[in-house]
Nucleic acid binder design. Structure first.
Lengths: 316, 316
DNA sequence: GGTCTAATATTGCTTTACGTTATGAAGCTG
DNA sequence: CAGCTTCATAACGTAAAGCAATATTAGACC
C-alpha cells in the first residue's frame, strides 16, 4: 500500500491549523476538497485519522503520527521548490569553466573568487585547455564556458564569443630587476637574461616567439619551462629571468607577487580574451549571471589598467 | 510554485536505477507513464532534469539535487506506510487502560510490562477509577479499556465484558505474621490485629466489610487507609496489620513483597475481574492484541494459582 | 432542552492527471 | 550502418481533485 504524500501534507496542515476548514484555507483549497481527500485517505489506510464525532476535528493517535511525517514531507517539498527557484535565478548550480592556464590562474580565478562570495551556492569546476579541445567540450556539453584568447571573427560559427579584454602582452620580470632601472631598453640590454617559456603548444609560446621577433630578437635561451603560473611567478621573483605574460596577469599580480613589466613595447597579438559559449543546448541559468559578472569585472579591470598607464606615462 | 512530491520520488528512482525504463519497472509503472511525468515536471520547473540527447538518461545537476530530495521524501513516505501497517496490526499505537487501583497495581501492571516487551511501540496510558466513572470514559472515547471487577450480567448493555479471573479475596498479612503459625484461625485470634482499609468508595472496601461479616466480625479497627498498593504492602510488611486483598494480588506479590494469606475462608465476592470495552466506536487495533494477551496471561495465572493451592492443600 | 451557529460531509459536475497499449524516433554498439 | 535498446508521443479510459451548492451535526448559548 502506497499512500499519497500530498495527502499526508494536507493532513499535517489540518492538524497544525487545528481544523479542517482552517487547514483548507491555509492550503488554498476549498473545504469540501480537503474533506473528501481525508475521507479517501482514511478509506485507504482503513483506520480513522480523526476522532469521530468531534467538531473541531481532532486527530487520532495515528493521525497525529502521520501528520508529523506529513509535515516533514512538506518541508522537503518546500526545500525542493526553493532549490528550483534558486536554480532558475542562477543562484544555485554548477558551472564548468575552462580556459588557457595562465589566464585562468592569473586573472579569472580572482574573479571566480569574487563571484562566489556573492553566489556561494554556485559550484565552479575549473579546468584548463586550448581552443580546439575546449570547443569540443563545449559542443558535447562537458563544459559550460571557455575563456580563451581569440580573434572575434575566428570563433566557431556555432558558438558565441564575448570579448573581455584586448590581447596585450608584456615582458615580465621581478620588481627589482636590473632592467627596471633603465629609462629605455635596447635589444642589447635584454641579451644576457634567460627566458621562462610557456608550454610549446600554448598560444602564449607563439606570442613569446612573435614578440621577441618584433623587437629584433631571433633566438633566446630558455632557463625554465612547463610550469603553471605559480611556478613561473616563483622563478621570476627569485631570478633575473624574463618572460612574456599578458599584461592583465602582471597587473593583477604586481603587488602580491612582486612582478613588473619592462618598458619596452612588443607586438600585440591580434586577439581578445573572451568568453566562448556553445549556442546549442540550454545553458544553466547561473551561466548568465557569471558571464554578466565577468563582463563587468573585466570592464573595471580595463579601466584600472588604463588609469594606471596614464599615471605611469605622466610620471615617466 | 508547488511541485508534486510523487514526481520527485519518481525522479529519485530513475536516478537511482540509472535509467527511465529501469526506474519505471522498479516503480511498477509503465515506461511511457514515467516518461510523461518527467516531461510534465520539467515543464513545470522550466528547466531540464536530464541531459538532453543522452540515451541512458543522465540527470543534470538540478535533476540530481531534486532526486536527492525525492529520495528523502520517498523514505518518509515508506515510514508512513510502515507506520500504518504496524498500527493496523496493533504493533503501534496508544492504549488508554484504566481499572481499580489495587488490581492495576498488583496484577495488571505486571502483565502490561510483559506485553510491552513484546510490543514496545504500543504506548500505554494507565489510569485509575471505578466502574461508573470508567464506563463514562469508555463511552466518550477517553478510554480504550477498563479492567474492573464486575458481575458479568451487570455489565452496561452497550459494552462488552470479558471475565479474566473469578473474584476471590483473602485476608492478607506479612509473611512471618503470628497468625501464620496457627493451623486453624478463629475469630478471637484475629481480634487483636489492626486493619488496613482501602478507600471507602472502593469495591474492595465493601468486600472487606462483607468478608469480615461473613466470619462473624462486625467491627474492626482501621490503623491505615487511603494508600495505594505500594503503601499498603509497605505497612503490611512492617506491622502485624491485616487487610483484605484479591488473592491474585497476594499471589503475585508473595515472594517479592513478603506477603501471605491467612488460612481462613472468607466470602467470595460474586464478581469477576474482567475487561470492559465500549461497543460503539472503532477500537485501536492494538487493543485486540492487548486483550488477547491479557486473556492468555490470566489463564496462565489462574492455572498457577490452582496448582499452588493443590500443593498447599496436600502439604497442609 | 431547544435553537443557533459554525464546522464538516455530501452531491453533482468539470477538469486534470495518470494509467495503459501501440507506435515512432533517436542514441549507442559492434 | 544495422540492429538493439531506450526514450518520446499518440490515443483513450479511469481515477482523482477541483469547485459551488447544499445537507448534516456537534457545541454553544440562552
Amino acid at each position: 500500500m502506497k499512500l499519497d504524500s500530498e495527502h499526508l501534507e494536507i493532513l499535517a496542515m489540518i492538524v497544525e491549523k487545528g481544523g479542517l476548514t482552517e487547514g483548507a484555507e491555509a492550503l488554498g483549497k476549498s473545504q469540501p476538497s480537503v474533506s473528501r481527500t481525508m475521507a479517501l485517505l482514511e478509506d485507504r489506510i482503513g483506520a480513522a485519522l480523526f476522532e469521530p464525532g468531534k467538531r473541531p476535528l481532532r486527530p487520532t493517535e495515528l493521525g497525529e503520527s502521520l501528520a508529523r511525517i506529513g509535515a516533514r514531507i512538506h518541508a522537503l517539498n518546500l526545500e525542493a521548490s526553493r532549490m528550483v527557484q534558486s536554480f532558475r535565478k542562477g543562484h544555485t548550480g554548477r558551472l564548468r569553466i575552462a580556459g588557457t592556464p595562465i589566464f585562468m590562474d592569473g586573472v579569472v580565478s580572482n574573479f571566480i573568487a569574487d563571484f562566489q562570495t556573492r553566489q556561494p551556492d554556485v559550484q565552479i569546476e575549473q579546468s584548463y585547455g586550448y581552443l580546439d579541445q575546449l570547443s569540443g567540450q563545449l559542443r558535447n556539453g562537458a563544459l559550460d564556458m571557455a575563456i580563451v584568447p581569440l580573434h572575434p571573427s575566428s570563433a566557431p560559427t556555432d558558438m558565441s564569443f564575448v570579448p573581455l579584454l584586448p590581447g596585450r602582452n608584456v615582458i615580465a620580470c621581478r620588481a627589482g630587476h636590473p632592467l627596471m632601472r633603465k629609462a629605455t631598453i635596447t635589444l642589447a640590454d635584454i641579451e644576457p637574461y634567460p627566458w621562462i617559456a610557456p608550454p610549446p603548444d600554448s598560444p602564449l609560446y607563439r606570442d613569446l616567439q612573435r614578440a621577441l621577433k618584433s623587437i629584433g630578437k631571433e633566438d633566446f635561451r630558455v632557463s625554465f619551462s612547463g610550469g603553471t603560473l605559480a611556478s613561473i611567478i616563483s622563478v621570476l621573483a627569485r631570478s633575473d629571468s624574463l618572460t612574456v605574460l599578458p599584461y592583465s596577469v602582471v597587473f593583477l599580480s604586481r603587488k602580491t607577487a612582486g612582478l613588473d613589466a619592462l618598458r619596452i613595447r612588443i607586438a600585440h597579438p591580434d586577439r581578445h580574451l573572451g568568453m566562448l559559449t556553445f549556442d546549442g543546448g540550454t545553458p544553466p541559468p547561473s551561466l548568465r549571471l557569471f558571464a554578466g559578472f565577468l563582463k563587468d569585472e573585466f570592464q573595471l579591470l580595463e579601466a584600472r589598467i588604463q588609469h594606471e598607464s596614464q599615471v605611469t606615462k605622466r610620471r615617466g
